[in-house]
Design a protein around this nucleic acid. Sequence first.
DNA 1: TATGCGTGGGA
DNA 2: TTCCCAAGCAT
Length: 353
Amino acid sequence: MIKPRARSTKPGAALLAWYDVQRRELPWRARAGEAPDPYRIWLSEIMLQQTTVATVKERYAAFLSRWPAIEDLARAPVDDVLAQWAGLGYYARARNLHACARAVVDSADGFPSDEAALRRLPGIGPYTAAAIAAIAFDQPCVAVDGNVERVIARLHAIETPPRKVAPLVREKAAALMSPARPGDSVQALMELGALVCAPRTPDCPACPLSSFCAARRLRAQSDYPARALKRPKPRRRGAIFILRRGDEALLLRRPPRGLFGGMNAFPSTPLTQDVAAAEFSGFAPCAARWRALEEPVTHVFTHFALEATVFVAHTRAKAAPSDCRWAARANLGKEGLPTLMRKAAARAGLLDA
DNA sequence: TATGCGTGGGA
DNA sequence: TTCCCAAGCAT
């Protein structure tokens, strides 16, 4: 008795057939048969770096509405772009986005379609360069993101540790690409990872590649991809200082780099360091009658958890301490504060929580 | 190459 | 509560 052959189709073709039916309508995604807009693809790819589709959907619409074309974005002051980005995190993305817009608009050739040229632009790394080249320009480039790595690692039961797995994943992903439809192939792999081959509970019965999947044969889907060992997240303490001048002005500063680089922030202890309560006063922006609010604000970053005591003081001084500026309280919402700083402002009763 | 860099949601 | 992690990049 000959076993019936389940693999009637090649995996790459099965993947595309699945994508043609199951693909989501996304604001930045061209509909079938429509030409993609490189500006929109690029903007979405930058926003989507380490950020969920649900979050990006909301922010993308507002961003695109404000700057409909890359020339508009290039013309805008970088501070406006950062303010619009506030709350999205990883603020270097916004600085690089703006720098990239200016570089593209200043160049005679417009938006590059070549992976290598894209890779040279600020904020565009290996994944994003390949994704833009494939999706916006239909070039045969293999974009490997977290989704693709997971799909491929399971498909081939790859045991290679995460640090060294990239070349193999890339090779296996390339084998799934359709030469006729590179953009759709790339998106299909990512879509499969997002909708079916999910990190925790893959829906294998719904997967077009299930009959090819080594991890499924081993009944060990959750063992792939091999995960890096995690280090415990340090807990740090710090203080945030909110100085009020009368009822109309607040003291803000912009950290030049690092955490919240370029963003508006209240003066604080160096938040990436653990600072004991006894040391707080040494970091206040000026001498004043600082009053500590009862409940600290807590915030969890990628690499540490913070508990910050919020201090408030009033002053009548006109001059702002060095590195700082006065901002109208009424504009606080528009200034574009990072989420932690919004929490602090809310705790002080200056913003709605 | 290992680390720093935000935030929000789901299990 | 805690953990995981989401279309990564720069240095």
